[in-house]
């Protein structure tokens, strides 16, 4: 018990025993606080740390960790491709499970060598996948213990307080305030004008438009009336669908797809004009801010 307390109080880096124990205690605290934001920050930090530790491990150890700790279907490839050696291979399903969230085009499956179900990887990439697995594992909520020692309880309260302060800085889901139509991204503007010309929209297009408008503060009524322009408009059905996307009944409010997804669905218009934006709402947020500033000055 005292070792546990020591681990929390003074996490010295050169004492392996303390280092070894500080992790489960930290994890315990995270679970007792039970906050998704905190859990995510913790998971990301630990994943980064683990990746730098994996760098010094040999190939056997890495494969053993991947297989036994995370159940990843992988192995030795020992393959030379284009003059470069690829020591590892991993089944594409596991590759996608852990890497489909990475944004860099380098990580897209289409930019990988895939053969007979396996993706070939260099060591650096393999450790990144492992780190992603660490992050995923730590992001899964666990049941916190029923009884918490008072020393830990104190820390938990302190952490919980700080989480609230930090999180306010990051709150970004819904865009509050007046709607600035001039700041709509080109994809959304195109959908609206298609609607106004009474063109029927695909399911994914309707979903995108609806979720976008709801997220920037359009009331449900206004979204429904926008759809009244289409020839096969059915008010009941439209209202039901819009309310569903707004999360009225289920509590899950949907956000529009990210730019990458929009591209897959053929809804994205121009990458250049949008600059480095990854999400239609991000485009809106930036341009809205710019627009309001200009309007002031």
């Amino acid at each position: 018990m005292s070792a546990l307390e020591n681990g929390v109080v003074s996490p010295s880096l050169d004492d392996p025993e303390v280092e070894f124990l500080s992790f489960p205690v930290a994890r315990l605290i995270v679970e007792i606080v039970g906050d998704a934001f905190l859990r995510h920050r913790f998971a990301v930090a630990e994943a980064k740390r683990s990746q730098s530790l994996f760098k010094d491990e040999d190939e056997d150890t890495l494969i053993s960790i991947a297989t036994h700790t995370f159940g990843i279907n992988c192995g030795f490839a020992k393959r030379d491709i284009g003059g470069r050696r690829y020591p590892f291979r991993i089944h594409f399903a596991d590759y996608l499970r852990y890497a489909s969230g990475f944004h860099d085009p380098y990580w897209k499956l289409v930019n990988r060598v895939l053969s007979r179900g396996y993706v070939f990887l260099v060591k650096e990439d393999f450790t990144r996948i492992l780190a992603s697995a660490v992050e995923r594992r730590l992001s899964e909520p666990r049941e916190p213990p029923l009884k918490v020692p008072s020393e830990i309880k104190q820390i938990v309260d302190e952490v919980a307080f700080r989480v609230v302060a930090k999180r306010e800085k990051y709150a970004f889901d819904k865009v509050e305030g007046e709607v600035v139509e001039e700041a709509f991204p080109p994809c959304i503007t195109a959908l609206i004008s298609a609607l106004q010309r009474s063109q029927p929209l695909s399911h994914s297009a309707r979903f995108t438009l609806t979720s976008f408008l709801l997220n920037i503060g359009y009331p449900i009524e206004k979204v429904v009336s926008l759809f009244s322009e289409v020839p096969d408009f059915k008010e009941d059905l439209t209202r039901y669908q819009v309310e569903h996307i707004a999360g009225i009944k289920s509590g899950t409010r949907y956000t529009p797809p990210k730019c990458e997804t929009m591209r897959t669905y053929g809804l994205c218009l121009s990458r250049e004009e949008c600059g480095n934006v990854k999400h239609p709402l991000e485009y809106y947020r930036r341009h809205r801010r710019r627009h309001l500033k200009e309007a002031e000055s």
């Binding site: 996608l96 499970r97 085009p105 897209k108 895939l114």
Partner: peptide
């Protein structure tokens, strides 16, 4: 596999987002 993963499979088959330098 979730939608993102399946979309990656679609992109692979169609060649969407392929950058020749990675090949």
């Amino acid at each position: 596999l979730d939608q993102n993963a399946r979309r990656e499979i679609v992109d692979y088959i169609k060649g969407v987002g392929l950058e020749p330098r990675y090949h």
